[in-house]
Design a binder for these strands. Structure first.
Lengths: 235, 235
DNA sequence: ACAGTTTCATGACAAATATCATACTTTAAA
DNA sequence: TTTAAAGTATGATATTTGTCATGAAACTGT
């Protein structure tokens, strides 16, 4: 189970300035501080489950989280990731529907929980916050519509290349150009939307083509431009 | 080219109550009235183009519109539809990015244009409107994430069944259980994310399986439950 | 009514991908 | 450390789907 930890103030949060709360005044943050709670989740722990009820907003203080949906035949589909400063669960709250995805920690993560009332209070009282939220949801839509098009039109190999680039953009690269997140082959398959075996084979091909290399379990990007070409990114 | 037509007041608009503007006060609507314009678009006409700049919001007074993205190899991908009371172009405005899709009329349609300033004015001044917009964008996300999962995991035939049901839910059925919108096979293919030939073949199969029948160009749904089973809809 | 164009339809074939079977390898647990 | 379990890898095969070719049917404008 997740461990309740001592909440530090949003004012001192290392991820505050990356978050949607970055423009709030200190009295607004204090109000959140008074009602929020913070939890630590081990790698593999579930933060919330698809189909559940959203009583509030989750904000990632530190960590890496995958958000996935159950496909029709019980196969997981990773929809997006959340990292430091990202928020989760707001779509269900806003649309007053069940949580549309499951959140699982990819590594030890600290996640704060802000009750729905405080969130809606901000929206009612602070137009700038609303605008910030709208900006966020609009960006999400742009991402999503691109993803729909990619899923529908690109080959598995192109999608794999695309996802490797997406992972790079989301989590960045370490000193050795390795993608800064650990995913199993199965998780990559659940992101690309294919079978695990296919991912294994295609990673092998990308390796042969000198686009990537494997440093243990870590994936090193050797030729980012080549990957972008393969993924058929026009922009 | 589209024809500029005489704008009638939002107060008398037949689609007003279905729209995101339904809770506005008459003075707010009058303000929109003073700045908006209305245009008629013939079937096949383009309302706006992907990559363009969003100077405002498009609101469908009457009609049926497809919103699509260009895929990497130049193939159109239909992302969503808009009908009476639906708005378009707001995601690009909100995220301050280029229009992420192209809007084309599927039949003669009347579309009003509301300048960005008025839209942002509403958001700044009316928290209820912001909330309504957030509700809308959140619902869009839920739709989109479902669509991503479907595209990634379902077979072409399942996706076709899924899309037929989606069309039914979006545009409804006429007296004879036919889907209330006319799409070419190619457009259906661009919605399902497959080749036109595949759609033609699969429509043939669905016909043989007595799930649908063809009444000229119109698609009649014979067995909605059967289609839902095939599409593997769990809920 | 006509020719020209587009849309719809079907077959043959090639390519991509899923599935199943089976090892090997690493990680975790006893 | 040993054993079990999970994750990774590879081959063989079947299925699905895309592509190309061709022809019929429906629509369009003159």
């Amino acid at each position: 189970m997740s461990k309740k930890i001592h909440s530090i103030s949003c004012l001192n949060c290392s991820s505050w300035n990356k978050s949607v709360f970055c423009d709030l005044q200190s009295d607004q943050l204090e109000n959140i501080d008074n009602h929020k709670s913070s939890d630590f989740y081990e790698k593999g722990e579930t933060i919330f489950k698809e189909g559940g009820f959203a009583r509030g907003l989750f904000c990632v203080k530190k960590g890496k989280i995958k958000l996935s949906k159950m496909g029709p035949s019980g196969k997981e589909q990773i929809i997006r990731f959340a990292k430091d400063g990202d928020i989760m669960g707001y779509n269900s709250m806003l649309s007053k529907s069940k949580l549309s995805s499951t959140a699982v920690a990819l590594e030890g993560s600290i996640v704060c929980f802000v009750p729905a009332n405080d969130f809606f209070g901000l929206i009612k009282s602070d137009p700038n916050f609303s605008l910030k939220m709208l900006e966020l949801t609009a960006k999400n839509w742009n991402e999503a519509s691109r993803l729909i098009t990619d899923m529908a039109q690109k080959t598995t190999k192109q999608r794999l290349a695309e996802m490797l680039l997406w992972l790079k953009e989301t989590f960045g690269l370490d000193e050795e150009n390795c993608i800064n997140v650990k995913l199993s082959r199965e998780e990559i398959a659940n992101l690309v939307g294919t079978a695990t075996e296919a991912v294994i084979r295609l990673i092998g091909e990308l390796k042969k083509e000198k686009l990537i290399s494997l440093d243990g379990k870590r994936i090193k990007l050797l030729d980012i431009h080549g990957l972008a070409m393969l993924a058929n990114r026009l922009e």
